[in-house]
Design a protein around this nucleic acid. Structure first.
Lengths: 341, 341
DNA sequence: ATCGGGGATGGAAGCGTTTGCAGCTCGTGG
DNA sequence: CCACGAGCTGCAAACGCTTCCATCCCCGAT
C-alpha cells in the first residue's frame, strides 16, 4: 500500500495539516519542521494522491488538449510544444480527439473534459460561437490555436498572409495559372484556417492581375491522399495549372508525387509550394511557408498559464511569424505558358 | 456550479446511493427508478466527478502512455491507436514523455503516474529489469511495445526478422556492400529494437555469405537529420556501399536526400530500404518493411484492458506481422560493383 | 393466514487531501 | 512584569463519490 499523508505525519510527528503545508511550500512552517517532513516523505516515497488533492483543493492540475486527431504531423508537433511547457509547470496534459463523424458535436454535447481539467487548449476546432460558450460554461480557461474564437484568447499564424506569400512567390516567378489545394472546405462551421488561406490565395491572384478560375481551387483534406487526389483532378483539367499552392506540406507532397507519376517534372513543368515546413519538406526539397508549430504549442501553453495569473495580460489574439523557404519545387513556368499577356 | 450527485438524488427523489447505482448500470435498481434517475441526471447535465469517483472507488479510469517523445511519426501513430480503443472503453489516456537528458531516470525515480493511472503502456522505453520492477510496484497494469520486458506483457514486431527481410531483399538484388543506418546505439540499456535490427542485418549478410564490415554500420538517431548525417559518413568511406538498410523510414529519407545531393541516382547507383512504411514513404517511393503502427497501439490497448479481466489470457509476448513493400528506391547494384566474387 | 426470502432502497462510513479557525508559544514593547 | 501580536501548529470540516450494511416491501410457499 502506498503511503498516505497520515503516514508521513506520524513519522514526522506532526499533524497532516502541517505535512500538507510543508510539502507544498506554503509559508508559516518552521524550517526545521519542513525539513523533517520532507525527509519523512521521501523516506516513505510519499506522493500526494491527485484525486484527493483535487477533491479537496478544487484544482485538477490537468489541462486538456483538444484536436481533430493526433496522428497527423501538425497536431503531434503542437502537442510536443504544449506538453513541454505544461509539464515543467506541473500540469498533466490530457488529449481529447474529436475525430470521426459527429466528433465535434459529440464533444460539445458530452464535454468529456468536465470536472477533470482546469484549462483547455483547442486547436483547429470548427466550433460555432454558441459551442464555445458551452465550453466556457464548464469553468475552464481556454486558449485556441489556429481557428480563433470571438472573445477567446487565441493564437495563430496569419493565414491570409501566409497564402499571399506563397502565391505571391508563384506569381513573382511568372505563373498565371495557379491552383490551390485544400482551401475552402465544405464545412458548416467557420473553420477559419482553410478559409483564410483561400482568401490569401485570391488576394495574391488579384494583386497580380490574374482572374480567378473556380475549377482551380480543389479540396485536399489536409492529407497526403487528399493532396494526391486533388492533383489528379487538376491534371484532368482542360488547361491544367503550371503551379499549385497546397495549404499543407503533406498535401503538397501527395500532389507532387502524382504530378511526377504523370510524367511532369517539378519544378520545370509544375511548381509546387506548401505551408508548414514539415520535417520531411527539407528532404524532399519542397518550397514552403514555414511556421513554428512546436513554438505555437509552447506559446499556447504559456498563454494558458498566464490566464490564471491576473497580473499578466496579452492581446486577445496573437499572430506568429511565418517565412517563405524557397527550395527546389518552384521555378518559372514552362516557356510558352507563363508570360502570355 | 456543476451539479453533484446529491442534486440528482434530490431531483429524482431517491438517495445518492441509488443514483450511483442507477447511473453506473449496477443491478438491483428498479427499471422505473433507473429511468427517473437518468432523466434527472441528463436534465442537470450531471457528470460524475472523476476525482471523487477515484477516491471513493479506487479506480482512476485513466491509463498512462509512456514514450520517448510524441512529436515523432511512430509515436504519434501509436498514440492514435492506443487512444482510439481506450477512449471507447471509457478510459482517459495520459501521455508521459521521457525525453531530455536523464529522462528515463527521472521518470523511474519520480514515477509521475503514481496514484494517477490504472495501467501503463510503455513504448520503446530502455528500462532495466530493476526499473521495470519499480514501476510494477506502483500497482499498475503494464503492457510494453517494442522493447519488451522480461515477464511483462508486451508486443512488438519481430525486429530480427524485419531486418533480415529488408537486407535479404538487398542481397537478393545482388548487393554485396550493404550499410546499416541506426542499428546498435550506444545505449547503456538493452534497448532491443535497434539491437535486434542489427542482428537481423548481420544474419542476412551471413546468409548471403557476405562478410561484415564494421564501418558500414552507423548510428542514425531514428531521425531525418540522423539519417542524413549517417549517409554523409557512408559516402566518405573509401569504398561506399551500394545499398543501405535504414532502421526507420525517416532515416531512409534523410539518407536518400543526401545521396541524391551527392549526385547519386537512387536506385541506379544506390538502393535504399527502410522500416515502418511511414505515411510519406508511398509518396517518395521508398521501399520498406511495413508494420501496422496504429494497429500495434490498438492491440496494446486491448491487451491492457484484458489484463484486468482474469478470464482472458494471451501469450506474454506477441509478434505482429510485417511485410516487404517494394517501391522505387531499390534495384540491382550498379554494374561492375555487385557480383564480383 | 403466517413466514421466509429476495429485490429495492437508504444510511452512513470512509477515500486522502486542503483549509478555515483556534490555540499555543514565544519575543517584545509598554 | 504583563499583555499582545506574530509565527507555528493542530483540529476538524468539507470535497463528491462508492459501497457495506441494514431496512423495508412484496410475493410465493407452507
Amino acid at each position: 500500500m502506498a503511503a498516505t499523508i497520515e503516514d508521513v505525519a506520524r513519522r514526522a510527528a506532526v499533524s497532516v495539516a502541517t505535512v500538507s503545508r510543508a510539502l507544498r511550500g506554503l509559508p508559516n512552517v518552521a524550517p526545521s519542521t519542513r525539513e523533517r517532513v520532507m525527509t519523512a516523505a521521501s523516506e516513505l516515497h510519499y506522493v500526494a494522491d491527485p484525486s484527493a488533492s483535487r477533491l479537496a483543493g478544487g484544482r485538477n492540475l490537468t489541462v486538456g488538449f483538444v484536436v481533430p486527431m493526433l496522428g497527423q504531423w501538425y497536431y503531434a508537433k503542437l502537442f510536443s510544444g504544449v506538453e513541454a511547457v505544461l509539464t515543467v509547470a506541473g500540469y498533466d496534459v490530457l488529449p481529447f480527439t474529436m475525430s470521426g463523424p459527429g466528433g465535434v458535436r459529440r464533444f460539445v454535447e458530452t464535454l468529456p473534459f468536465r470536472k477533470r481539467v482546469d484549462g483547455l487548449i483547442v486547436a483547429d476546432a470548427p466550433l460555432e460561437p454558441a459551442q464555445f460558450r458551452r465550453i466556457e460554461q464548464a469553468e475552464v480557461d481556454l486558449v485556441t490555436i489556429g481557428t480563433l474564437g470571438q472573445g477567446i484568447v487565441g493564437l495563430s499564424v496569419d493565414n491570409v498572409a501566409a497564402a499571399r506569400l506563397a502565391v505571391g512567390h508563384l506569381t513573382g516567378l511568372g505563373h498565371r495559372r495557379i491552383a490551390q489545394i485544400g482551401g475552402i472546405v465544405d464545412d458548416p462551421f467557420h473553420f477559419s484556417v482553410p478559409v483564410d488561406r483561400y482568401h490569401g490565395y485570391r488576394d495574391a491572384l488579384e494583386a497580380a492581375g490574374i482572374g480567378h478560375d473556380e475549377e482551380l481551387a480543389v479540396p485536399g483534406n489536409f492529407s497526403l491522399e487528399g493532396g494526391a487526389e486533388a492533383m489528379h483532378r487538376l491534371l484532368a483539367l482542360d488547361e491544367p495549372p503550371t503551379a499549385v499552392f497546397a495549404c499543407s506540406d503533406e498535401m503538397a507532397i501527395g500532389a507532387m508525387q502524382v504530378a511526377r507519376d504523370a510524367g511532369l517534372r517539378v519544378p520545370e513543368d509544375l511548381s509546387i509550394v506548401g505551408i508548414d515546413d514539415h520535417d520531411v519538406s527539407e528532404y524532399v526539397g519542397l518550397t514552403t511557408i514555414r511556421q513554428d508549430v512546436v513554438g505555437q504549442g509552447e506559446r499556447a501553453a504559456q498563454r494558458l498559464l498566464e490566464l490564471s495569473d491576473p497580473a499578466t495580460s496579452g492581446p486577445l489574439h496573437e499572430h506568429l511569424p511565418i517565412r517563405l523557404i524557397v527550395r527546389r519545387t518552384t521555378g518559372p513556368p514552362p516557356p510558352g505558358v507563363g508570360f502570355r499577356w
